[in-house]
């Protein structure tokens, strides 16, 4: 049965890509998250992580997002969190990575 990942086709336009996350973003889904993150990180666009519906974010999930951030930041592109849920905020603060994963002002 197909996993519940839905990755859209990449378009080569430099508008921000949106990575939409919801539910449990943890080690059980981390491979799907990685695929989605890789897809987002492949182009030359900044990335917005829409995470208002995230119920749980653990170190494994956070690690993937940090790797994505690291990759984009190395080519001077942004990764921002949009409307982060409590779970996301708590994880980011706990790990002390607010500067790697800043919050989008338009949240």
């Amino acid at each position: 049965m197909s996993e519940d990942t839905n990755v859209g086709i990449a378009e080569r336009i430099e508008r921000p890509r949106t990575l939409r996350l919801s539910g449990a973003v943890d080690v059980s889904r981390v491979r799907a998250l990685l695929d989605a993150a890789r897809s987002c990180g492949a182009g030359r666009s900044p990335v917005v992580i829409e995470c208002s519906a995230v119920e749980r974010l653990d170190a494994a999930g956070l690690q993937v997002l940090l790797a994505l951030a690291k990759k984009l930041q190395s080519v001077n592109l942004d990764v921002r969190l949009r409307s982060p849920s409590e779970a996301v905020l708590a994880a980011v603060r706990l790990a002390g990575v607010e500067s790697e994963l800043p919050i989008d002002e338009r949240s």
Binding site: T5, L19, R20, S22, A24, D35, A36, A53, E55
Partner: peptide, 13 residues
């Protein structure tokens, strides 16, 4: 379980 609605998507927005 609680996570039936989990979805991961990447779209061009």
């Amino acid at each position: 379980g609680q996570t039936t609605n989990s979805r991961l998507e990447a779209t061009a927005s």
